Amino acid sequence: MKLTQIDLAEGRGGSQREVSASEAVARAEEACGGTLLLFEPDGAPRAAVAICPGGGFGKVNTEHEGVAFAEWFVAHGIAAGVVKYRLPEGDPALPQQDVERAAELLRNRFDGVKTGVLGASIGGYLAACAALAQPAARRPDFQLLFYPVVSMEEEFAHRPSMLRMFGRELHGLEAKRRSPLYRIDRAAPPAFLAAAADDGAVTPLGACRYAECLLAAGAGAALHLYPSGGHGFGLRREFAWREALVGELRMWLDATIGTV
């Protein structure tokens, strides 16, 4: 496995340097905002994915919602870039810019294979926004959303994240305008969604509604709602439904990007 640290933020020159794979977690934790940690398999990758961890815009959960996913993807022949995005700190455009730059970098670097985005929790919001970018030519080929925030409307929003991103609560048309849920169209990339029925932080109804809107638009969706697991389960070993999750994820990826 090859691991490269790449600067995403403007003004830092897009510098790159190889780092030891054994230092992946430490590097991810220490990296400043606007950094991509790119994990590549030894052979040519069959796809690539930009990973947007959660953290409620108070931090970025680079370990269990970033590196853990990346290592799983590499083991299955897929290049994966963990996005240590900048926190909003008064400018809601900052984290989204980092995610979009990361997705573009992967498209350019791995020309000829499908590229996607993965997001967990509020990272799911960033990933969904990137997946539904305009023009449609900038969109990734697939999206993977884990217990995602899909709307800034009261029934779906994660209030602490919204306040940290926008500095205030959003309502009405403004909340809808800031919600990827309302950007879904027929050209939306197919989605794999996973959530737990007992999630007390981000309602699983958001993932259900997102899948419903995709299907209504004629786009592809695979929704996996597990009976338990709460919020933030990622690929943790203690998640009771982990084996079912990784099996379903592997099958969906094989069908979407092709087998080796």
Rank of each mutant, 00 (worst) to 15 (best):
G167C: 07
V117A: 05
A26F: 12
V260P: 13
L87W: 05
A28K: 01
A31N: 09
G56F: 05
Y226E: 07
A201I: 13
P135D: 12
G66W: 04
N61A: 15
E100V: 02
D199K: 09
F239A: 07
R183W: 15
M152Y: 02
G116W: 05
L126D: 01
P189R: 10
T4F: 03
A50E: 01
L181Y: 14
F39A: 07
D42T: 11
E174N: 02
R177N: 11
R186D: 13
S20A: 13
L106S: 02
I257R: 04
R164M: 06
A31L: 12
E169Q: 06
P53R: 02
A102Q: 00
L37F: 01
H64M: 04
R159W: 03
F39P: 02
L3S: 07
T62H: 05
G43S: 11
H76D: 10
M251L: 12
G55H: 11
L235D: 11
E212T: 03
A211T: 05
G112S: 12
A31P: 08
L193G: 10
T115W: 07
V25H: 07
Y85R: 03
A194F: 10
E169D: 11
A197M: 13
A80I: 06
E100N: 08
G66P: 03
G206I: 09
P95H: 06
L106Y: 01
Q96H: 13
M162H: 01
Y226Q: 06
V60W: 04
P92K: 05
R177L: 04
P92L: 10
E104W: 00
A102L: 00
E104C: 01
A48W: 03
A50K: 00
V83R: 04
R101A: 02
E63S: 10
Y147A: 04
C32I: 07
A188N: 07
M1S: 14
A255I: 00
A102E: 00
Q134E: 15
A103C: 09
T203K: 03
E89I: 03
G90D: 08
G56A: 10
H64I: 06
C129A: 11
G54T: 09
V149P: 09
L205A: 14
Q96N: 05
C213H: 14
R186N: 06
M251Y: 13
A136Q: 15
Q5H: 05
G58Q: 11
L145M: 09
C129M: 14
